[in-house]
């Protein structure tokens, strides 16, 4: 599966739509395996972050597939978008649980109910990001890495081999775009 991932990345970057889809499917199932157990776990004192999950996934796959595996920056770019999808799915799922669970008497888990994200807001954000991805893909990827996966500016700078200031400037730009987009939608 690891070799397919590198092959798929190549094909996807060459403009092969089907390959891109397959790549996302493959990454999704791999990350899902790791992230699901993570995101599903609440109540543990401290849980691993999405960032660490991505790194462990990368390390895992790279160690298994050898030198042909794509570089980390490219991998993270794809994986971060997949992670965004996972987080939104999770929020949806929670939303469903929240509704289904109305009648549970148990006082447990009110905290996670409070913290539950409104999945619709996330979906909206995701749509805005997809649009941004059409105009400036690097900005969209940056938001995936920073907002959804918790990467630091320093880390993204290293990943992209640019200065941290550049990353920060791009982040501000992306925020302007998304804020404008989401606010416009809300005021409809």
């Amino acid at each position: 599966m690891e070799t397919t991932i590198s092959a798929l990345m190549g094909a996807a970057e060459g403009g092969d739509g089907a390959a891109a889809e397959e790549l996302f499917g493959a990454l999704y199932s791999e990350l899902h395996r790791m992230a699901k157990r993570e995101l599903a776990r609440r109540g543990t004192p401290v849980s691993l972050s999405a960032t660490t999950l991505l790194h462990e996934a990368y390390l895992d796959m790279a160690a298994r597939s050898g030198p042909s595996f794509p570089d980390r920056a490219r991998f993270m770019g794809y994986a971060a978008r997949v992670m965004r999808g996972l987080i939104i799915d999770h929020a949806r799922e929670r939303h469903a649980q929240k509704r289904g669970g109305l009648f549970e008497i148990t006082s447990l888990d009110t905290e996670s109910m409070e913290a539950a994200v409104d999945h619709r807001e996330l979906v909206q954000m995701s749509e805005a990001l997809d649009e941004l991805g059409e105009v400036e893909p690097a900005l969209a990827e940056l938001v995936d890495l920073k907002f959804f996966c918790g990467f630091t500016f320093a880390e993204i700078a290293v990943l992209r081999d640019v200065s941290e200031r550049t990353v920060q400037r791009n982040w501000e730009k992306a925020r302007i775009y998304l804020h404008r987009k989401i606010r416009a939608d809300l005021s409809l």
């Binding site: 960032t51 660490t52 790194h55 462990e56 990368y58 390390l59 790279a62 160690a63 570089d71 980390r72 880390e155 290293v158």
Partner: peptide
């Protein structure tokens, strides 16, 4: 690359 991922973890 792998080293960095390992350090991150």
């Amino acid at each position: 690359e792998e080293a960095h991922a390992a350090f991150r973890s």
